[in-house]
């Protein structure tokens, strides 16, 4: 169930303790990138069904930003990582 999120710092907590920001997959373009690239990054979002990556913040707990990988159709949660760690891996 997506209503229980396993925070890597605090353990399993209900979704009410979190704030959901949205898609975690867009990568910030270079500062001087073309306008269309920035338009894509800021405004355009896919609306997939299935496995997605999202930014969640554990506001009522450790207040850390997390990357939650979950299925928005079955509500299955595949993994939760600290956003700082997830960022290191992406670089």
């Amino acid at each position: 169930m997506a209503s229980l999120i396993s925070c890597p710092h605090c353990g399993t907590r209900p979704k009410e303790e979190f704030f959901i920001r949205g898609d975690a997959t867009p990568v910030r373009p270079a500062l001087m990138a073309a306008e269309e690239v920035w338009h894509d990054y800021v405004h355009l979002r896919a609306n997939p069904r299935g496995r997605i990556r999202e930014h969640w913040q554990h506001v009522a707990g450790c207040r850390r930003w997390l990357v939650v990988e979950r299925d928005n159709f079955t509500h299955e949660v595949f993994g939760v990582t600290d956003a700082a760690k997830a960022g290191e891996g992406a670089r």
Partner: peptide, 10 residues
Amino acid sequence: AANVLCSHLS
């Protein structure tokens, strides 16, 4: 110890 949500308060 842990930060938790109690009713609607952290």
